[in-house]
């Protein structure tokens, strides 16, 4: 790789870390030649940008899976059926999760659209009072939009909302409408619209629960994802137990030092019952975790944190040799 390309990469690496380093060391607000500088003003937006940048790798991961397992299937390598299962399960799950997400978004959009009507009525009355726009055509548009939503379940609520809208329109038609009458009618209409929104939300939820995509995606999660995940992790219990057998054989004093706390922790965690050995075991367990495990782990953590920080600085300043860089150099 040419020197220039390397320099560009090093420059971007440095710039990437510089903001977060300065954001940490600089005070929130400070003066510079008479100007007040607020360094972390856009911190949330920048952090969001970083998350977006990280999320862009998702597609790369998917492409990699398809390239690896697609090649195995196409070349009919041994156990290609497993790769086929992997890709199919990925595609089916992704399809139904996406469909479920679209159904959820549709439901939320429908509810938000009706919730929005309350704000619309308030805006129309406010605009009328400040003489910004004529209210009657706007309320007529509200009636038209409500008429479009008619369905047997919503008929009553829509009728009530439309009739209250018409009363409000009559109030507005009267020149110099009495302010109190106008506001009380506005509140009545808002209550009617809130009732309509509740009904719409209930119906949208019922329709969503019946949605095929929602049913299939929750079926996949409940029948495969959750049981397979917990079975995988619990499988380790068997291996941990065999490891325990090996490590708990007291071959040295150090093995004894591992065994005694481990045994006390395990016995202390077992719920009380008729076969309980000693009632003070849970307290011993808590004491061990608080006064032995916690400080020892803390000391290890301090050491690793300092090492991690040193490593981070090396990475930021491009002092660490990149494995990716090596590949590139090997290719010439």
């Amino acid at each position: 790789m040419s020197q220039l390309k390397n320099k560009i990469i090093v420059f971007f690496t440095f710039i990437g870390g510089l903001y977060f380093f300065l954001e940490y060391i600089l005070p929130e607000k400070w003066q510079l030649i008479g100007y007040e500088i607020e360094f972390g003003k856009y911190h949330d937006q920048i952090t969001q940008g970083v998350i977006i940048l990280s999320l862009m790798t998702i597609g790369l991961g998917i492409i990699n899976i398809f390239m690896t397992h697609g090649a195995i299937i196409l070349k009919s390598r041994p156990h290609w059926i497993n790769s086929l299962v992997l890709l199919l399960s990925f595609l089916i799950t992704a399809f139904y999760l996406t469909s479920d997400f679209i159904a959820q978004e549709k439901k939320n959009y429908t509810i938000a659209r009706f919730e929005n009507l309350e704000l619309f009525v308030k805006t129309v009355v406010e605009d009328y009072e400040t003489k910004q726009s004529a209210p009657l055509p706007r309320l007529q548009a509200l009636i038209i939009s409500l008429e479009k939503e008619r369905s047997p379940e919503l008929n009553a609520a829509i009728n009530s909302s439309i009739s209250e809208t018409k009363i409000l329109m009559r109030e507005l038609e009267v020149n110099n409408a009495v302010k109190n009458n106008l506001h009380s009618q506005k509140e009545i209409l808002i209550v009617a619209l809130q009732g309509l929104t509740k009904q719409v939300a209930r119906l949208a939820q019922i329709n969503y629960e019946k949605d095929k995509a929602q049913l299939v995606s929750s079926f996949i999660k409940n029948s495969l994802f959750i049981p397979l995940g917990s079975a995988m992790f619990s499988l380790l219990a068997f291996y941990v137990v065999t490891a325990a057998y090996r490590s708990f054989r007291i071959k040295s004093w150090e093995a004894l030092a591992i065994m005694i706390p481990a045994l006390l922790i395990m016995l202390g965690q077992i719920p009380h019952g008729p076969a309980y050995i000693y009632s003070g075991l849970p307290d011993i367990r808590t004491w061990l975790l608080k006064n032995l495990s916690s400080p020892a782990f803390r000391a290890i953590f301090f050491g690793s944190a300092i090492a991690g920080l040193a490593m981070a600085v090396r990475m930021w300043l491009s002092l660490e040799k990149s494995p990716v860089q090596d590949d590139e150099q090997d290719r010439g």
Partner: peptide, 18 residues
Amino acid sequence: AQITIGFLLGISGGMAFN
């Protein structure tokens, strides 16, 4: 791609302080 990877590595280095 190394520019983006480097940038993200730099960010993680900078974030490590905090």
